[in-house]
Amino acid sequence: MKKITKQSLVTFSLLSPGLLAIGCLFFYPLFIIIKNSLAFEEEHIFYHYIKFLSSSNGLYVIGLTCLLAFGATFLSICLSILLILILRRKPIGHNFFKTLVLAPITIPGLICALGLLLFWDKNGWMNLIIQGIINRPIQVNYTIPGLLIFYTWLFFPYTFLITFSQVESLDKSIEEAAEVVGANRMQVLRYILLPLAKPGLLAGSIITFMLCFGAFSVPLICGGDYRPLSVSIYTTSAIYNRWDEGSAMAVIMALIQIFFLISYIRIMKRAR
């Protein structure tokens, strides 16, 4: 009995530095935000929440954030599936390609944002190509489709890499067996490959989704007038100095994220 207590004491003292750090640097700040967001002087304690959620701007900001996150996640899934179908057959340079998609992950988001702004600018290379086709430049920067493209560019590697590692570990003979019994290519994709790759696809896309939802540096620079939740929180509190309102928005953002996370995990469990 004595030995067990001593052992668990050692385990606890080993665990404590990490837990203490997370508590001080994450949970305590969260507690402070929740405390700041409550209006003790106003007639209603949830005054700032009600004010934000009942304003047209509040709903617009939440809608915009969800639209960008869902849209970019969907585009990432499509792009990843397409790429995986091609790269699975190991064409020339597939290793180079796997390194290439690491670039948006390892390079700071801010640099990526600057590069994307320059590349999609009215005088950028992309518009030079487009002008060669339709004879006039198109506005991509500071628009919603532009933000969707930027988000996809930045965050699709997570979906791609995780799904790809799952597909690579699949047993090739399953596919061959399906082909032997007469399944055509589409059937193999629809009934064999996609269901088998589904756990990877879900796990990868949830990371893409969470990053899109919380993206900060990219919409801050490339958003223009479109300010998703993260940027709105920053401008409300740090620039307009309305910390209580900003804190209420931060709590709402965290709650939405947790809600999506839990629903995603449920879907994932069902998929397994």
């Binding site: 665990l15 990490g18 837990l19 997370i22 640097l25 994450f26 305590y28 700040p29 969260l30 507690f31 402070i32 935000i33 700041n36 969470m210 939802f213 919380g214 900060f216 939740l229 993260s230 929180i233 920053y234 509190s237 740090a238 910390w243 900003g246 804190s247 931060a250 709590v251 953002m253 965290a254 994220q257 947790i258 996370l261």
Partner: peptide, 24 residues
Amino acid sequence: ILFSIILLPRMIPPITYALGISNI
């Protein structure tokens, strides 16, 4: 549960708790 508590700062957008951190 312990592991998910430790990973929580990476799951919730940093801007949300960044406000609290700067306050403290």
